[in-house]
Structure formats: C-alpha cells, structure tokens
Design a protein around this nucleic acid. Structure first.
Length: 461
DNA sequence: AAAAAAG
C-alpha cells in the first residue's frame, strides 16, 4: 500500500527558529493519529491511502494547526500540498453558502493550480467543502460563477487572482490563511509585485504559510515583510536529489539527439516519460516527429491554449499519454506517480531546474530513471549539476552515439575546480579520477570543463 | 536567450 512518504523519507528535519518547535527528526515518526486530527480527516487519509506522514507533513501540520506562520523549505509534491491542505481543512469554519474564501493558495503555474485543487478536494473527502481553481488562459466567467456559489479555498496563479480582486469577484477580507507555494519560483517569474498586491488585500490578522524549494534572500525579504514570527522548517536534504532515482547522461552531438532519443526509448520501453526541452519550438518539433510513428505522445508549453494544456495534463495523468514533451512549465511540482523516466533532451538552464525536473520521477517511493543529453559544449553545466547534487552522473552509451568527451576528464576537472571535498562519497569515479587528467591549458579547442568560473568572473558585472 | 504569467 502506498504511504505518504513522498519526499525523502530518510531525511532529517532541521528547525531553525528562536522559538522551540515540535519539529525535529522524530517528527516523521509521529503518526497522523497523534496530531490531533479529526476522526473524519483520519478516515479520509486512510481511504486515500495516506498511512504515515512524510517528514514535511510531520513538521508542518502540528505547527500550522497551532496557528503559527510557517516558512518551510521543501521540494514539491503531494507531501507538501497535504502538509498545508490538512491544517486548512481541519480549521475550516462553516460559514454557509456563498461565503467568501477562508484560504487562498498562490502557485506559479496553471497546471499546479489544477493539481493543488484536486488534492484539496481529495483530502476534503465527504465533508462539505468547496475549492475553486483560478488561473489565466481560460474564460473568467466560469470562475466567477463558481466563486459566487461560494468557495472555501481559492487556489490560483497571481495574475488571474488579481484580476478577480479588481472585479470584486474575490473578497479576501475574511481570509484566515494564505499559502505561498513554490515562493522562490513565483519570485523568479516576476510575480513579486502581484503577490504583494494580493497580500496587502489580506487581513493583517491571518496565518501565512510559505513553501519554497530554496530560501534565498528575496524569499527571506518577502517572509520578513509579510509573515508574523514564522517558524522555519528546513526539509531540504543534504543530498539534493532523491536516492531512488538513477541518474545517467549521454554525450551526444546536437544534431543526433533525436536519433538518440528514439534509440533510448526503444531500449528502455518506459512506462511513462517526460522529455524536457529548452524551447517551446523545440518541443513542437520533437512532438511532431515522435507523433508520426508513435501513439500516446503529448506536448505541453506556454504557447498552447490553456484548454489544450489542461487536456494534455489530464490525459497524461490518465496514462493515455505516455510520453510528454515539455518545457519547464511542468518542471516543478507536477506530481504524476507513474512517471518512470525523465529525459533531459536539452540540459536544463540552471542546476536547480535539473533537480526539479528529475524530481518528477521516483515518486511515491517508486524507482525512477533520469537521462540527460549533454553536448560537448555543455560540460560546465553538467559539472555544476553534479556539484549541486553531490553526485557524479553515470555515463551511458548506445552504439553509434559515442561520447564526445571522456568521463575521466570531466570528473577530474570537477575535483580540480571545486575541490576534493565536493566529490560524491558514494561514487568512486570522482574519487579515483586523476587530477592530472584535467584539460591541458594548451589545448587548441575550448576545454569544456576548464576555466569556466574565471571567464565568467572576468566578464561578469 | 528562454521559460512562466493577465488580456
């Protein structure tokens, strides 16, 4: 039976707060039945297969239930959604028909709005509860009429939420809880002004829950400004990427990627896959070519009409689509437990994005595999990823697609430039790699792993 | 330069 230990169950919880909290490394050992949850909630959790709280849930639920603001550093997934949804549902007041929302959840993408809404509905079980997803790209009228009928919780992307506020179709004055999900991502996208406008519409006396993969200075500033003595919980693992995910890479020339993809799919016969691509155009191209000879291919990116996007996600969840070609729209947070393979057709732009993409697989404790296509110019990016996850990706080969560049050099360069302390403890490759094998300075062609940091520094600023 | 998101 499935458990709720979706995110790094072995990972310890670190609390960093001046106030004493209940969240320590024993938090995950506390059962749902020891959290003071209602009988109906416990019954619902049981019926949907939630047996043991994940560390995130173990940490967040009791603290949120006690009414505290929470600043949680945690990656995406059902574990996190339930962590804020359960306390919201448990403290729900019966305000009668057509009442204004009691909670609002802000998320960075429309797909996440849909996913979080579905999760709320699932966790609400039999109880009387209404939640409405509010996001752009779709006719606003349907959303308005739903809101008029009354919504206990509104889940949305900031732009459309603001639109509703302007039309007075959402009233935030009697709100109890605000959730900022994927806060770092929302700030990245440039939602800061929108988020602040929305927060200013909320009552001062409220509970604010902020979840973020990283707590960089911009996130901290937001928290300082809009949160009240937040309890800080850090669920970020020492080991950035989940151990149940096998991570490989191929070196390949750009113009041979498509052939390699086909060969890899033939070899792997994956049950469900996301192929991540850097550009929307690239997605379209790969999607079109793959669809010519295969069935169950889907495509999603920000240029597609929202109706099509929603449909594709639904079909993907229903496993009618088994291979999804996507941009980073779905790089974060999307939770489809049957995804067995992640293929980075293009290496992600930032190593954080890599961690998020790869985290789409290996969910619900299942195994997952990730493959990253690396061209000979992209050595730096690969190294940066390896430094971040503190692991050396295993090189894979398929006949006819030989490496453009030897692995030894790559690992050696990593050791040389980042120091021996960064090598993967569970991977002997990096340890054994001779430092002398680093790219020779007199090499005529640009050494991919060579002097990356320096040239950047020189040019930078 | 690309991606996301309000229309």
């Amino acid at each position: 039976m499935a458990t709720t230990q979706l995110e790094d169950p072995q990972n310890d919880v670190e609390t960093t707060s001046e106030m004493p909290t209940t969240a320590d490394d024993s938090a995950s050992k506390v059962g749902f039945d020891e959290m003071g949850l209602s009988e109906s909630m416990l019954a619902t959790l049981k019926s949907i297969g939630y047996e043991t709280p994940s560390p995130v849930q173990g940490g967040v639920i009791p603290i949120a239930l006690a009414g505290n603001d929470v600043l949680g550093q945690a990656r995406t997934g059902t574990g996190k959604t339930a962590a804020f949804a359960i306390p919201i549902l448990e403290t729900m007041e019966d305000r009668g028909k057509g009442a204004a929302p009691q909670a609002i959840v802000l998320v960075p993408t429309r797909e996440l709005a849909v996913q979080v809404t579905d999760e709320f509905q699932r966790l609400a079980g039999e109880r009387k509860f209404r939640c409405v997803a509010v996001y752009g790209g779709k006719p606003i009228k349907a959303q308005i009429s739903k809101l008029e009928r009354g919504a206990d919780v509104v889940i949305g992307t900031p732009g459309r939420v603001l639109d509703h506020i302007g039309r007075h179709t959402i009233d935030l004055r009697t709100l109890r809880v605000v959730v900022l999900d994927e806060a770092d991502r929302m700030l990245d996208i440039g939602f800061r002004p929108d988020i602040e406008k929305i927060l200013r519409q909320c009552p001062a006396k409220r509970q604010t829950l902020l979840l973020s993969a990283t707590v960089a200075p911009p996130v901290k500033r937001l928290a300082e400004r809009y949160m009240h003595e937040p309890v800080m919980l850090d669920f970020s693992p020492k080991n950035k990427s989940v151990d149940t995910i096998e991570q490989h890479f191929f070196t390949v020339d750009g113009d041979r990627k498509y052939d390699l993809l086909n060969r890899l799919l033939e070899r792997e016969q994956p049950s469900q896959t996301i192929v991540f691509c850097r550009t929307k155009r690239g997605c379209d191209k790969i999607h079109e070519r793959l669809s010519r000879k295969r069935k169950g291919i889907g495509c999603i990116h920000g240029d597609l009409p929202q109706g099509a996007r929603d449909k594709v996600m639904k079909a993907f969840r229903a496993e009618e689509i088994t291979l999804l070609v996507a941009t980073d729209v779905v790089g974060r947070g999307i939770d489809v437990s049957s995804i067995s393979h992640i293929i980075n057709y293009d290496i992600p732009q930032s190593s954080d994005d890599y961690v998020h993409r790869v985290g789409r697989t290996g969910r619900m404790g299942r195994d997952g595999v990730a493959y990253t296509f690396v061209t000979r110019e992209e050595g730096d990016e690969l190294t940066r990823i390896e430094i971040l996850i503190n692991k050396v990706l295993i090189e894979d080969k398929i006949d006819g697609f030989e490496a453009a560049r030897p692995t030894q050099k790559r690992a050696a360069a990593a050791v040389k430039f980042y120091g021996a302390g960064t090598q993967a403890s569970d991977n002997e490759e990096a340890v054994e790699a001779p430092v002398e094998a680093a790219p020779a300075p007199e090499a005529p062609k640009p050494a991919p792993f060579g002097r990356r940091g320096r040239s950047k520094h020189r040019r930078g600023l």
